[in-house]
Design a protein around this nucleic acid. Sequence first.
DNA 1: GTGAAAGCGCTAACAG
DNA 2: CTGTTAGCGCTTTCAC
Lengths: 336, 336
Amino acid sequence: MSVTIKDIAKLAGVSHTTVSRALNDSPLINPETKERIKAIAGSMNYTPNYSARSLVLDRSYNLGLFFSTLHSGTSAGFLYEAIKGVNDVIKDQYNLIVRGIDDYKSYHNVNRKSFDGLIVMSQSRSDQSFIEYATDKEIPLIVLNRQVDGNRVMNLVPDDQSGAFKVVEHLIVHGHRRIAIIEGKTGFKSTQARRDGYLQALSRYGVAIQDGFAERGDYDFESGYAAMSRLLKLEDGPTAVFCSNDDMAVGAIKAITNHGLRVPEDISVVGFDDDLFSGFMTPALTTVRRPIEEMSRAGAVKLLSFIEKKEVERSTVFFNTELVVRDSVQTISGGQ
Amino acid sequence: MSVTIKDIAKLAGVSHTTVSRALNDSPLINPETKERIKAIAGSMNYTPNYSARSLVLDRSYNLGLFFSTLHSGTSAGFLYEAIKGVNDVIKDQYNLIVRGIDDYKSYHNVNRKSFDGLIVMSQSRSDQSFIEYATDKEIPLIVLNRQVDGNRVMNLVPDDQSGAFKVVEHLIVHGHRRIAIIEGKTGFKSTQARRDGYLQALSRYGVAIQDGFAERGDYDFESGYAAMSRLLKLEDGPTAVFCSNDDMAVGAIKAITNHGLRVPEDISVVGFDDDLFSGFMTPALTTVRRPIEEMSRAGAVKLLSFIEKKEVERSTVFFNTELVVRDSVQTISGGQ
DNA sequence: GTGAAAGCGCTAACAG
DNA sequence: CTGTTAGCGCTTTCAC
């Protein structure tokens, strides 16, 4: 059996209460006994039983980092940056539990007792029921990435629409008028926001929307490839394509190349997300940077202060996206 | 306050003991009372307090998925596939805790009480001390990816060396004799295994090793770019480059392109890992597939049976890698 | 089949 | 400054 505070108490000739207090740095304890007890604890290789502590303190020391889904629509880079961001912030004391919300058959095991707090990386409205569930249960919650309807949670989101606007504007400024879009996964809020940014830019600059220039994708490489292949069959095809994320942009570029055309000489391609590889592919991708890691870090900080100081701040904070200009856009003189 | 078995007991007019037994499907309980109690529990929206259960059962329901490091040398795809693999297997009952081993200031909080089991995704010998620590503490443990010295743990590893051999052999068969290597992060076991495979292929085919053809990288895009840039300064440069992972291959290709040369027409490039994007980049990358997700899944299954049935199997299982031929290698007639 | 009682390891009044 | 006592919610003898 492992060593408990009672074992230490026996050896130190004090009560187990004193041991508990000493180990928790209570100011009530004589500094010398405190040191003595800590020394003994150390030499006995004592580790606290967190289950016991959790039971009495009513804290689990578990933090959840939940994604809408882990199976599709979540890019590896996204997951990576989010985990890194959160793990950087939380202390040794907390456990970070990573899950896809759609992996849960029932939310039953998600409750105040099991989680001190929750970070939801929301990509789709499909997790709305989960967010409501957590709010109901009064689990400290922070929602990242997607703006939640109703605004009753702490919400950190990138400004996807203005990001999309910027990158499409970039295309227009470089002379493009025939600009297609490959959209993201249906039902994802980001899909809609990026489409809106695209449309907003076109309309702001008085660029006509062409028939057949809107293709559906679902945020993975394959779908970008497939969507671009369809675009390439068009009689009067686009001179530029806005892909709703970088993964699809990679797929689109592949399709263009396989078709015997070049990027950006024949067709310009831009993406969204600024994935880790985007600067290193050929051609380097012009895209929009979403500050996932910063957002995750900020979210974790807010969550901890929520948990520890009980300060709740039910507001939506927007994080700026940033246009990253690289080599996948060609300046053209024509126009339509 | 949340509802406990005592509340249910009161309402059902039985003792809390009976409630506990009913909820745990004890065969001792009258089927009718069992149903009645379950119904009441359901209607009261009862959820068990895991801390309490953990305390008495001496199980935490926590599983750890630990990486050597989350900060460098771990590619996003690697993390992604590992998490997916493990999460697919573990039941709703377990929490999956994801961490970088180097994030722990002390391993103190990692113990039998806090973790029912551990999966270590080992990339470097730097986590050897952690593995020994966990073994000492008798925490059910399974080590993935790196073959551990001493062979005293359950160990699932890809056969990196033979994978590297295959892809370098592929280069040789296609006429290449001047083959450079960009190595992985120093100290990683995979770095060594892949270098060994490279050397083995050269020596098997009697290909000479050239001075200055071995460059050091550290598994990220930037380092691949930098290493390739150095290679490009060589007077009599390589016709082909074996990059120890795909990320670095992307960086290398970028360097080549920026240098005004083409892949594969001027220089052939191969990678290792078969990252998610590798088939979709241009040119599509010839590489070696490492079955991370399958390995993770298999590891999780083994770990659970270890935990639940106490069956330990201290053996090393090798997972086959697979040569994935795509478009980044040119057949050349010459030789040196 | 069911209940009474004990105890897992810890913290927190309360008393001194 | 320290100890006594109780209790967190649950499972598990042991008795009936």
